[in-house]
Simulated scan of single mutants.
Amino acid sequence: MSREVVVREAATTVLLRDAAQRGPDQLEVLLLRRHASHVFGANAYVFPGGAIDEADSDTALAARCISGTEQAATAGGSVGLAASMAAIRECFEEAGLLVGCVARGDESQRDALRVALNDQTRAWADVAAVLDLRFTLDDLRYFAHWTTPAGPPKRYSTRFFAAAAPDGEALCDGHETTHVWWASPAEAVTAHDRGEITLMTPTRATLETLRNYDNVDDALAGLVETAAALRA
Rank of each mutant, 00 (worst) to 15 (best):
A188Y: 08
T178S: 13
E28D: 01
A116H: 07
Q21P: 02
A95T: 08
V180P: 08
T178F: 04
L81S: 04
G100D: 09
A162D: 03
A162R: 02
T178D: 12
M85G: 04
A228I: 09
T198Q: 15
R22C: 02
L113H: 10
W182T: 04
L140H: 12
R104C: 13
T158R: 11
N215I: 01
D58E: 06
F161Q: 05
V180F: 10
V130Y: 09
E169C: 10
S157R: 13
A116V: 04
H192M: 12
G77N: 10
V216F: 01
L97S: 02
H145V: 10
P152Q: 09
E4V: 07
F47Q: 00
S184Y: 03
D167Q: 14
D138I: 05
P48H: 01
F160R: 03
R134F: 08
A170K: 03
H145D: 11
A129I: 03
L207E: 03
T198P: 06
S67K: 02
A82D: 09
A20Y: 02
D173I: 11
G68A: 09
A86R: 01
D138K: 05
L137F: 12
T13K: 00
H179A: 14
M85N: 12
V46E: 06
E93R: 14
L131Y: 09
E187G: 11
C91H: 07
D53T: 05
A44Y: 13
V14K: 00
G100S: 11
D138E: 13
E187F: 10
C172P: 15
D167G: 14
E196I: 04
A183F: 04
L223V: 05
G80M: 10
D119P: 04
C65T: 08
N212Y: 06
G50R: 01
A150E: 15
L113Q: 11
E28I: 01
A191M: 12
K154A: 12
P149N: 10
G100E: 07
E90Y: 06
A36V: 08
G222W: 03
T59E: 15
W181N: 08
W182L: 03
Y142I: 05
A55R: 09
D126Q: 15
V216C: 02
E107S: 12
A205P: 08
G76V: 04
M1L: 12
G174C: 11
G96F: 05
G80A: 14
E225I: 07
P24C: 02
Q71M: 12
D106G: 07
W182R: 04
I66N: 06
T74V: 15
A229Y: 09
K154P: 02
L133Y: 07
D193I: 05
R104I: 07
A62Q: 08
S84L: 06
D217A: 14
A221G: 14
L137E: 12
L133S: 06
D132S: 13
A165E: 05
V5K: 05
I52D: 00
K154Y: 08
A87F: 07
E208W: 04
D126M: 09
K154S: 11
T121D: 11
V102S: 14
E107W: 05
A19R: 00
R122Y: 09
A55D: 15
A191E: 12
R110L: 14
Y213S: 01
G50D: 01
G195N: 13
